[in-house]
Amino acid sequence: MNQDWGYGINKDRQIDFDRNDRRLAEYIRKYVPSYKLCISCGACTATCSTANLTDFYNIRRLNIFLMRGEIDEIAKHIDKCMFCGKCELVCPRGVNTRQVILIMKEGIKKIKQNEQL
């Protein structure tokens, strides 16, 4: 069984402020207050139903992409979430992860349609 425990090595990337699109992160910050509690512990990924079935999904990493402002990366994977809620139940910090995902999807849709967030 191919299990991604969320501790893989992220792709190397220099901090590049020009590429850091803060729109989505700010959007989440505004609508999901619990998001700021995330400590990137990876418990969510370890239990995630989708991450269990595919290498290309990792909810903790989506959070990191969000902070780095890499919206395209998030958009590539976000639709794989099955909304099962396991991540939310194991999160030690009480992050409302499903709300994060829902609002992320919403924000991405708006960004794609060039709407104001």
Binding site: T50, L53, T54, F56, Y57, I78, D79, K80, M82, K105, E106, I108, K109
Partner: peptide
């Protein structure tokens, strides 16, 4: 947004 991607 009702997207989904369950090809996996």
């Amino acid at each position: 947004s009702n997207g989904y991607n369950f090809q996996f």
